[in-house]
């Protein structure tokens, strides 16, 4: 290889390094979810000023909504929340109910809902909202597969979130996970209420699977949302433990995690 070519390569490597450094050096604040094991895995809790994805099957849409509302409730710290949704989602899984949100312990007064007609508008609006540092968080809800959610769109959202410190939450119902720059990715389904022990059943219980974590291992937990305390917890009495966290990823993330940036 000639010297000129080597130096070109070096320059390119250098510029890529420069582009990527801010992302990796970015050390977000974290907010504890309340669930001890999950917080330990997430090294303190949900990263603020980052994008998190929640995936669910079509019929699990309400559970996923509840889970993402819980994440938002933890992340926004009583600041406004913008909820961007595509028109189609209301037909498929019903409109977000303010009474229901209040029952979960969240404050409907903090919520501004944007009814976007299509995915492109929703995506653009969400990116705009993420850049507004007066907000606590932005939820983007899209039904089904959307080719618009490519790496570029995802990177845009992540950069906007990092610059403003606003937490972005993506609710993808009836969609398959695709490569993105999200900080974490969850797959959520509803879990049974614990067997009757004399207490009222029906508190939101989620079977939450952390399938991707940029800065740590993954895991799977049964999480119960405590409406009165506004946090996630281990259910008091749950019959059998679910699958333990897979051991194939070490807890301490080595530097090599950079290699899987777009995984």
């Amino acid at each position: 290889m000639t010297g000129a070519r080597t130096s070109t390569l070096a320059t390119l490597r250098g510029s890529i390094e420069r582009i990527e450094t801010p992302g990796d050096a970015y050390m977000p604040g974290r907010v504890a979810l309340g669930h001890v094991d999950a917080d330990a895995t997430l090294q303190g809790g949900l990263a603020l000023g980052a994008v998190h994805e929640v995936f669910a099957e079509g019929r699990q849409s309400a559970a996923a909504t509840g889970f993402i509302a819980g994440l938002a409730g933890r992340a926004i710290a009583r600041r406004p929340l913008v909820w961007v949704r595509q028109d189609f989602t209301e037909i498929e899984s019903g409109a977000l109910s303010m009474s229901g949100l209040a029952e979960l312990g969240l404050d409907p007064r903090l919520l501004v809902v944007v009814r976007a007609a299509d995915v492109d508008t929703a995506l653009r609006t969400a990116a705009d909202a993420l850049a507004c540092d007066a907000l606590g968080g932005v939820v983007l809800e899209v039904w089904g597969e959307a080719r618009q959610f490519d790496l570029v769109a995802s990177r845009k959202l992540t950069l906007a979130a990092q610059a403003s410190g606003v937490t972005g939450l993506l609710l993808r119902v009836a969609a398959q996970p695709s490569p993105s720059t999200a900080e974490t990715r969850w797959i959520v389904r509803a879990a049974h209420s614990p067997p009757a022990t004399g207490t009222a059943w029906g508190a939101p219980v989620f079977d939450a699977q952390l399938v991707r974590n940029r800065h740590g291992p993954v895991g799977r937990w049964i999480m119960e949302w405590k409406c009165d305390e506004c946090l996630f917890e281990k259910p008091a009495a749950y019959p059998q433990p679910v699958a333990a966290a897979p051991a194939h990823r070490s807890h301490q993330t080595p530097d090599r995690v950079r290699e899987r940036r777009a995984g």
């Binding site: 899984s93 977000l96 009474s99 229901g100 949100l101 209040a102 029952e103 409406c227």
Partner: peptide, 17 residues
Amino acid sequence: WPARVEGEPPLRPLRLF
């Protein structure tokens, strides 16, 4: 907004058709 009943599970659904 009407206050929720402490200690009760949610009495209204999160998604409403």
